[in-house]
Amino acid sequence: MTPRPAPAGVWFITPGHSPARFPAAHRCGADVALVDLEDSVPAALKAQARQNAAAFFTAPAIAPALGVRISSPTTRDGIHDLAAIAEYPTRPDIVLIPKTESPRDIEVAAGVLDAPGYTPHLYGLIETPRALEDLPSIVRAPRLAGVLFGTADYATATGCTATWDALLHARSVLVTSAAAAGIHAIDSPFFDLQDNAGLRREAEQARNLGFAGKCCVHPRQLPHVTAVFTPTDAEVATARAIVAAAQDAGDRIVEVAGQMVGPPMVKAARALVARAEAVGTQHEVTA
């Protein structure tokens, strides 16, 4: 059986203690919608959020890939989260594991959740200096599908400012390690809900650095991030021309529109075409 592709693109997260927001998350048009059991949920409401979240995954057929951000599996809440998810009538496609600092964190989640006919995509949330130091081993955890960068916790832990320049080193290391392991890297949310220009700029910088997507924490951020991570018609046309020329040439180096094109460019073009087709399918489904 061919493995399901791990989701990338635009991610949206909604708090688990507010089930009235679930239908909007299902219709938001993101590639992935997550229900949160961690930071956005007050401590007194975590048990209720855990119970509410079961309904998040009984969404209509027309919905993005659905997932959950649990609490750290090294905490009591995280253990309760995993145990609850294992018993949900419909279980999530994706489980995001915060404070991931070793392959063992991924193994614990997989050990609780994996069952005959069910192996969710596990993503590690990289948000501590220790995690960055141990990335080469984390990204090669057998059950890891991808990583997300958590700027807020990382900046707090290091004492740096939560700006692009201050966090560029960490982002670069994360993208490089993920690429070496052949998994997706998704960028952190942009937390200033009033600065759409800043959001767009950061999304473009993340895409240019090699991130496969970016998280959003408010519905009005989605159009801006989606526009950045959706290939333009011109980009898709160019990519299709590269793929076609390479096929005609037996994958030898060819010239396309005055540019020499070799295997790395062809691989990138095929990935862009696949991304465009995935976005097109998602838009057809949510229309």
Rank of each mutant, 00 (worst) to 15 (best):
D195K: 13
E202K: 00
R207T: 02
T176G: 01
A181Y: 01
D195V: 13
A179K: 13
K214P: 01
Q205W: 13
F211C: 02
A197L: 12
H184Y: 02
G213S: 07
R220N: 11
G182Y: 05
P223N: 14
E204G: 09
N196Y: 14
E204H: 03
A185G: 01
H184R: 15
K214L: 10
G210F: 09
A206G: 07
S177A: 15
Q205N: 11
D192Q: 07
L222P: 11
N208F: 04
L222I: 15
G210E: 01
L199C: 11
C215F: 13
P189G: 02
A181G: 04
R220D: 03
G198W: 04
K214C: 03
F190D: 13
A206Y: 00
D192T: 11
L222S: 06
L193G: 09
C216T: 14
C215G: 10
C216K: 10
R220T: 12
L222R: 12
K214R: 12
Q194H: 14
Q221I: 06
A185D: 10
R200W: 00
T176V: 05
L199N: 08
A181F: 02
C216D: 08
V217R: 14
D192H: 02
A179N: 12
Q194L: 13
L193C: 01
L199H: 09
R200D: 10
A178R: 13
F211W: 07
G198R: 02
C215D: 11
F191C: 05
A179Y: 06
S177H: 03
D187P: 03
D192R: 02
C216W: 08
A185M: 07
A178F: 10
Q205C: 14
H184S: 15
T176P: 00
P223R: 10
L193Y: 13
F190T: 14
A179R: 15
E202M: 01
A185L: 10
A212K: 12
R207N: 01
S177T: 09
N208R: 15
N208W: 01
L193F: 13
A179P: 00
N196I: 11
E204W: 01
S188T: 15
E202G: 01
Q205R: 15
D192F: 05
P219W: 03
N208E: 09
A197E: 12
G213C: 09
C215T: 12
L222V: 15
H218C: 06
G198E: 05
Q205S: 13
A212F: 00
A203V: 08
Q221D: 04
S188K: 03
V217P: 05
A212H: 15
V217Q: 07
G213L: 08
P189V: 08
E202N: 00
G198N: 04
A180H: 11
A179T: 12
A178V: 13
A212Q: 15
P189L: 00
A212C: 07
S188F: 04
C215W: 00
P189Q: 01
F191L: 10
R207Q: 06
R207H: 09
L209C: 04
Q194G: 02
V217T: 11
G198Q: 06
N196K: 14
P219V: 04
T176E: 07
T176S: 09
C215N: 06
Q194V: 08
